[in-house]
Design a protein around this nucleic acid. Structure first.
Lengths: 177, 177
DNA sequence: CTTACTGTACCGGCTGGACGGTCTTGTCAA
DNA sequence: TTGACAAGACCGTCCAGCCGGTACAGTAAG
């Protein structure tokens, strides 16, 4: 699959995420994305023949980035375990006040099934973490607390202060051992 | 605010929640809700002059129910503290495989600001819990883990098994003291 | 070199359908 | 009779997807 001229795919995916984040998930129209990406509607539909394909692309790209980031962290401090890497990665991800994944809401509105790969990924991650630990209770608490942190960030819910978030991460790392 | 004939408001709100849950958050149109509620579009728009008002009604009703349920639980076993009540209530809420609050995604798509009252409510609840406890770290872990559980339920993510959920709740109750 | 042809990448006007909201016309209790 | 309330046809808008173009790179025959 050679690429002759420019490839707008990445540009379009980034633009879609930007539009959803800045204009709200309800404003994620093809025209808005195309305009943001500096591409015409026709060009957009050339790269993603359907809106569903665009959503799918967003999910895949999100999952790839996450996987890569997690692997990098786990490799960097390998002896500490994947759970710690996951905690730290999530903590960093949640530093941004505006969630980078608002497009998820658009995807759900379009069709809840778009999130299936994400669910599968999470299940897989959870299984991997289960193999690593011997205290299932602690793992559950940590895993769900991270989930809660990510969810709050996604919903742009600033219930926790900076200090509280740091304390939370510290507590989780302690529980994780 | 007297009601002369039938009270369609409750019926409409329930219908809206049903439609969002069963047909997906993207299918929450006025026509669908009206038809589901056994009411005409005119009747629907008489009760909720605008779609925004309908969303607002959904949020308010959700918050009212939650508040009442929490108060009831807290009163029933008063000495155990509000946090335990919150944990148990959330655990029960998350028993249903299909989330009862899928309409939230529609609300976000419509306008993210619709969730403002929910955020305020959560902040308020968190403050209340802070006053009750002396170990902020444990509270944070519990609070976020519940948030994670609720989020997973909302996204219809069945990562945890029944047994794991029970173990999680037990662990949280232990942490809560 | 030139001409003719092919496939890739992109453009933007158009349309058909869905949806929110309005308006007119009932209907029934008081 | 009146007025709270319901019905559903109708209108304007928005948007996904379609389609007929344009531009350009490569190729290959003459």
């Amino acid at each position: 699959m050679r690429v002759r001229r420019a490839n707008s795919r990445e540009k379009i995916l980034a633009a879609a995420a930007d539009v959803a984040r800045e204009a709200g998930p309800g404003s994620l129209s093809l025209e808005a994305v195309a305009s943001r990406a500096g591409v015409s509607k026709g060009g957009l539909l050339y790269n993603f023949p359907t809106k569903a394909k665009l959503m799918q692309g967003l999910v895949e790209s999100y999952l790839n980035n996450f996987q890569k980031a997690l692997e990098a962290r786990a490799a960097a401090a390998g002896h500490e375990g994947v759970l710690s890497a996951y905690i730290k990665l999530s903590a960093d991800d949640c530093e941004q006040p505006k969630p980078s994944a608002s497009w998820m809401f658009s995807a759900i509105a379009e069709d809840p099934d778009f999130l299936t790969p994400i669910k599968a990924f999470k299940r897989q991650l959870f299984e991997r973490l289960k193999e690593e630990t011997n205290d299932l209770g602690s793992l559950l608490v940590c895993f769900l607390a991270i989930e809660g942190m990510r969810s709050m960030n996604l919903f742009d819910s600033d219930v926790l202060s900076q200090g509280e978030r740091e304390l939370l991460v510290a507590s989780l790392l302690k529980i994780a051992g």
